[in-house]
């Protein structure tokens, strides 16, 4: 896809996210909208579905995941509006019973270890392919992330490409106020990782950053500066939109903004 096509695709996926959460009357729009540009690049440009794997460690951004799966034909698009409903298979957080999802997630801090396991399996078998793992910036407050960071370093898992969706906000406020998540680059470097910092809404930057991991001999992390709620004016950088559904009026405004 061209950059323009990717941007347009991301816009459509944002509409799916907002509509899904509006219909579900609950869900997590803020983080879904902040990571969707990266996921658009992964699902529509960089991932080889036969070789590569994806782990959504920040599982509450399931709407972004489901929208991507629908857009590549893994699940029917019309099913998206059954999200979180009693007769739907689209659980509030990802389940690997859903076509296209390798591992269930939702309890934070656990996806990087699973990605490592998948990467080790490839390493043992001499198989090609990367394991992409989407982490939240609040999520990395979980200690297990750093256990996994050490394991990836120990086994030189250069086929691991993690993203930190660095939108700066978590449920109780800014990540600096809640836990003081700072110096991320230095932290990951100290753990032996190849670190890149990019604008997580710049399609070309995302593509380049992924390409830059091709010759890496270390595990890779791309710290992607993003805007929580990106694309919907009243949700942007608002912590209150972490886990809340829009009402009818807000929904209409959001869809109008995303139609441009």
């Amino acid at each position: 896809m061209t950059i323009e096509e990717l941007e347009n695709r991301a816009r459509l996926l944002r509409k799916d996210i907002v509509e899904m959460i509006y219909n579900a009357k609950s869900g997590h729009p803020g983080g879904s909208l902040s990571c969707i540009d990266i996921m658009t690049v992964l699902f529509h440009e960089k991932m080889n579905m036969d070789e590569d794997r994806f782990v959504l460690s920040k599982g509450h951004c399931a709407p972004a995941y489901y929208a991507c799966l629908a857009s590549i034909g893994k699940i029917p698009h019309e099913d998206l509006n059954t999200l979180r409903k009693i007769d739907s298979y689209l659980e509030g957080h990802p389940s690997n019973k859903i076509n296209g999802i390798d591992v269930s997630s939702g309890s934070l801090g656990q996806g990087l270890s699973v990605a490592n396991g998948m990467a080790l399996a490839k390493q043992l078998d001499g198989e090609r392919g990367k394991i992409y793992c989407m982490l939240g910036d609040g999520e990395i407050e979980e200690g297990q992330i750093w256990e996994a960071a050490m394991t990836a370093n120990k086994y030189s898992l250069n086929n691991v490409v993690a993203f930190v969706d660095y939108n700066g906000l978590q449920i109780d406020g800014s990540i600096m106020d809640v836990k003081g998540v700072n110096n991320l680059k230095e932290k990951f470097e100290a753990f032996g990782w190849n670190v890149q910092e990019i604008n997580g809404h710049d399609m070309q930057a995302i593509i380049d950053a992924i390409d830059n991991t091709n010759d890496s001999d270390k595990p890779n992390v791309i710290i992607a500066k993003t805007i929580k709620g990106k694309g919907v004016s009243f949700m942007e950088n608002q912590v209150g939109w972490h886990g809340k559904a829009p009402n009818e009026e807000e929904y209409k405004q959001a869809m109008e903004e995303l139609s441009k």
């Binding site: 656990q110 270890s113 490592n116 396991g117 998948m118 080790l120 297990q144």
Partner: peptide
Amino acid sequence: VGIAEQDLVGTAVGLALS
């Protein structure tokens, strides 16, 4: 994986799912 039991189980799951 060292003294990291949560990582132990997560890594094991990744291998098993592969």
